[in-house]
Amino acid sequence: MTALLEVKNLQVRVEDREILHGLSLTVNPGEVHAIMGPNGSGKSTLSHVIAGKPGYEVTGGEILFKGEDLLEMSPDERAAKGVFLAFQYPVEIPGVATMNFLRSALNAQRKARGESEFSTPDFLKKVREVAKSLSIPQDMLKRGVNVGFSGGEKKRNEILQMALFEPSLCILDEMDSGLDIDALRIAADGVNALRSPDRAMVVITHYQRLLNYIVPDFVHVMSRGKVVKSGGKELALELEESGYAQFEDAA
């Protein structure tokens, strides 16, 4: 079986500083991987490089997605192929109604894959269904993308898009930041509903707390631009007790 995502010995620079020094990670369909680590360990860099955010220079290694060279693809191609990044800080786009945005994006992806575009009634039906399951009120969909949304609403909007686009790889970057416990539970329920044998998730977080709600199959600890330890979900609990300091020294 081809792995869904294979990161091999990845080295990444931002300006003159190397952030990732030979990181490797293999994710198979159906798996949920948690990546934990202190601030500055390179977690967000990894997510950005996978999604294709400009400003990073890959100086070594490779990333294969479904066996194809991901680094050769533009970010929108990656999205159409099934890479989804749920942002830590989703941006606001004034004047662009959420519904309009969702439709433009979904149809752009479908077009890129050579699929037919959704008809308006089918699209509306689908959005309403998903929105309801995430307790997203209809009027939120009419507002500008994320404009005036609370932290919880923004994160739910990310999950709404995830549900709508049906990506095969979901990267959740610090999904728990800025959420209270109730908002976190709603968001986590949304994510869990999307777990499937064809879909993998990479959950990036500082805290073990999120992993009580989204239970991972594998936990990786990152420090100074490398994965320094990998294990099962119990590794997260271990970290919660002993902290990251031990890995800082090891790295």
């Binding site: 294709g52 955010k53 929108d76 990656r78 999205a79 990044l85 941006v91 994006a105 752009a108």
Partner: peptide
């Protein structure tokens, strides 16, 4: 026009121009 806003849109499948 913010790079972050553009990247957000492009990550969702829109081309740079779109």
């Amino acid at each position: 026009i913010s790079e972050d806003v553009l990247f957000y849109c492009i990550q969702r499948g829109l081309s740079q121009e779109e």
